[in-house]
Amino acid sequence: MGYTILIVDDSLTARTFIARTLQMAGIPLNQIYQARNGREALDLLEREWVDLVFADINMPVMNGTEMVRCMRAADLLKSIPVIIVSTDRSAHRMAEMKEAGVQAYLTKPITPEDLKTIVERFLKNA
């Protein structure tokens, strides 16, 4: 058995980058799911359990902020750690996301090394 991880980003490139880093890191993986926006992610989370979510903020249909708020309001989803990976570097946005209940906020571009460190930190506690 390994971990199940969900990557939410409207960019295929961004999702692929994170997925490849996770595979390179030698973390035991059960499944990597991908979603293109918050709505697709919530639909998936209704059916599947995941150990960790990576999410962008700025996405069409449903953005990351709204997605996190929905997750935090749902009993079954509120304990799943969410790591934001966004281009938005504003202090305001970081504070807003922290208040919404995210566990970490990374700004793009991230290095594979940074990503590996943070994933290992979260999965150790998962």
Binding site: S11, L12, T13, S86, T87, D88, R89, K108, P109
Partner: peptide
């Protein structure tokens, strides 16, 4: 998709 994501990141850096 790659160039769109590249511009997205450039924009974040440019603004901030």
């Amino acid at each position: 998709d790659a160039v769109k994501e590249l511009l997205n990141i450039v924009c974040g850096h440019y603004i901030h």
